[in-house]
Simulated scan of single mutants.
Amino acid sequence: MTAAVVQASAPLFDTPGALARAQDLIREAVTGRGADVVVLPEAFLGGYLKGLDFGITVGSRTPAGRDLFRRYHASAIEVPGPEVEALADLTRDLGCHAVVGAVERRGGTLYCVALFLGPGGYLGLHRKLMPTAAERYLWGQGDGSTMPVVDTGTARLGAAICWENYMPLFRTAMYAKGVDLWCAPTVDDREVWQATMRHVALEGRCFVLSAAQYRRRDDLPADLHPIPGEAPATVLIGGGSVIVSPLGEVLAGPLRDGEGILTAALDLDDIARSRFDFDSIGHYARPDVFSLHVDESARPAVVRD
């Protein structure tokens, strides 16, 4: 199997433009690079507004911040919806699987999600369980009902979005579902992220496919004013996409200083080889000492009998 991780960003507040960019990048990864599985970064559709504060201070909001959220809300996608169907048509045509970071609009609330698509079309989504820090101004929390692991026929795909990768109980729940290809859409461009990706690969004995955004100030609309600076070449999100083997070896990347697509040929037999001496939810577990209860029920605010 050949895997590809895409390091790029899409135009903000331009949903058709973002969709077209996603389609072009998936098509390039599959037809130009031979990828069977393609991962796009966190919030690729809908956008990650790094460096913007939405006019929020403790106990107050501003009219300008509310209007910025209105623009952000309008550029998010609905699931199901036309953007999802367009991506599903593409993966059907190409015969590939894709994991695409997006911002989902559901009523008045936005969610950071990973969309799963394949030769059969739209396969499901994962909603980020815990938005990080100021992301909580913008995004709601997912629940246990959207933690899928998708069987491609040759490997099982799962996703943890950005700092969900630091949640040990979430990781354990996903390992128990037998994830083989751990997809990590992110905007974390720090050097220490590489240590996390190698740790997850080694702990889960799975391939890790981490796709990060790359964005500069000149990619933003002129009327936005990010805190990091106004110089056009100011890097807002610096990339760091990487592909790691089940024994923690870096197969491709990390990619820095620009956009691009990383690919790696994955020997799926390496999964069994790696689990010979460590299986965190199998022979290396101690269920007599430790146990984990996972609630995968949906938690709607209103239930109608």
Score class of each variant (00 low, 15 high):
P11S: 13
T15C: 05
G17W: 02
A18V: 01
L19H: 06
R21G: 09
I26G: 08
E28N: 10
V30I: 06
T31F: 09
G32E: 06
V38Q: 10
V39N: 04
V39M: 03
L40M: 12
P41N: 09
P41F: 08
F44D: 01
G46H: 02
G46K: 03
G47M: 03
G47V: 04
K50I: 03
K50C: 01
D53S: 14
I56E: 09
V58N: 04
S60M: 05
P63V: 03
R66S: 13
F69E: 05
R71D: 02
Y72Q: 05
Y72C: 02
A74G: 03
S75E: 02
I77G: 03
E78D: 05
P82E: 10
L87A: 09
A88W: 10
L90C: 11
C96F: 07
C96W: 11
R106P: 00
G107S: 00
T109N: 00
A114G: 12
L115A: 02
L117E: 08
L117V: 12
Y122W: 09
L123A: 08
L123F: 11
L125I: 06
T132S: 13
E135M: 03
R136L: 05
L138E: 05
L138R: 05
W139V: 01
M147I: 09
P148C: 07
V149K: 08
V149G: 03
V150F: 08
C162L: 09
M167I: 04
P168V: 02
R171Q: 13
M174S: 03
Y175D: 04
Y175S: 05
Y175R: 14
A176V: 00
V179M: 09
D180K: 12
L181T: 09
L181G: 05
W182N: 08
W182F: 15
C183Q: 10
T186F: 06
D188Y: 07
R190L: 14
V192Q: 07
V192H: 02
Q194P: 01
T196V: 15
M197E: 14
R198W: 06
R198K: 15
R205T: 07
R205D: 04
C206I: 13
F207G: 01
S210N: 14
D218N: 13
D219Y: 01
P228N: 06
E230G: 10
P232V: 14
V235W: 12
V235N: 06
V244I: 15
P246N: 10
L247M: 14
E249A: 15
V250F: 07
G253L: 14
P254R: 06
R256H: 15
D257Q: 14
G258H: 09
G258D: 07
E259V: 11
G260V: 10
L262F: 07
T263C: 09
T263Y: 07
A264Y: 04
L266K: 08
D267K: 13
L268T: 13
I271H: 09
I271T: 12
R273D: 15
R273Y: 04
F276K: 10
F278D: 03
S280E: 07
S280V: 10
I281L: 13
I281S: 08
G282K: 13
Y284M: 12
D288Q: 15
F290A: 15
S291N: 11
L292C: 07
H293L: 15
A298N: 00
P300C: 02
P300I: 01
A301P: 00
A301G: 10
